[in-house]
């Protein structure tokens, strides 16, 4: 139902986001082959995960993996403004759901400060068991592998989720005014796949 004009605008916005990506952070996430030289399989696995950690511990991801049930914002992980609560199903409370503000797409505000409101369908907070803020990469790794905490996912499902999930992918298209996660979701997915293939070893906690 989008008019030609807004499709064009959206395409333009997307284009400019991609340009930023290529320019600033496209190089900063190394693809799995960069780790081929690591001979020890366990060490290679750890190195791959450590590289993927640049994404996992990026503010775009950490902000919605808080320890408390309130998300944070910005590159400094300050409290979400306005104050909100993840609610019973991590989609906000029934009376003030995430969708009160977060639509299916990033929305331009044309403001001179906050330039866009992030959006994705769905928009949600990570469950409490998947809190990452303040965790070491080793701890995040262990948590990711633990079905009791990762939503009862197999490693294959974890790979699928991280490589394909739309909300995860938002981290690379976070809307004007936000630094995207490094690299691309594809490279990130490849890193995770390679990590799993190499035994899914974790860095020291």
């Amino acid at each position: 139902m989008f008019s030609h004009r807004s499709v064009a605008t959206a395409a333009l916005l997307l284009l400019s986001t991609n340009v930023t990506l290529a320019d600033s952070s496209g190089e900063s996430l190394r693809a799995p082959k960069a780790f081929d030289s690591v001979r020890n399989r366990t060490e290679r696995s750890v190195a791959l995960f450590t590289e993927a950690g640049k994404v996992l511990q990026h503010p775009r991801c950490l902000n919605c993996h808080p320890v408390e049930r309130q998300p944070t914002q910005g590159d400094d992980l300050h409290p979400h403004m306005p104050p909100v609560h993840g609610g019973p199903e991590n989609r906000g409370t029934k009376e003030l759901p995430c969708t009160s503000c977060h639509g299916p797409h990033n929305t331009a505000t044309l403001g001179t400060g906050l330039k866009s409101i992030p959006g994705s369908d769905p928009w949600a907070l990570a469950p409490a068991s998947m809190a990452w803020q303040g965790f070491s990469l080793g701890e995040i790794c262990a948590q990711l592998k633990d079905p009791a905490r990762n939503g009862n996912r197999t490693l294959a499902q974890i790979e699928e989720h991280l490589a394909k999930d739309h909300l995860v992918g938002w981290a690379w298209h976070p809307g004007e005014g936000r630094t995207p996660a490094p690299g691309t979701q594809q490279i990130f997915g490849e890193l995770i796949a390679a990590w799993i293939k190499t035994g899914a070893h974790c860095p020291k906690p």
Binding site: M81, P82, P83, G111, T112, G113, L114
Partner: peptide
């Protein structure tokens, strides 16, 4: 400053 994010004010809570 420019909006209620960098000019916070007292809210209900």
């Amino acid at each position: 400053q420019g909006n209620f994010d960098d000019c916070p004010v007292v809210r209900m809570q």
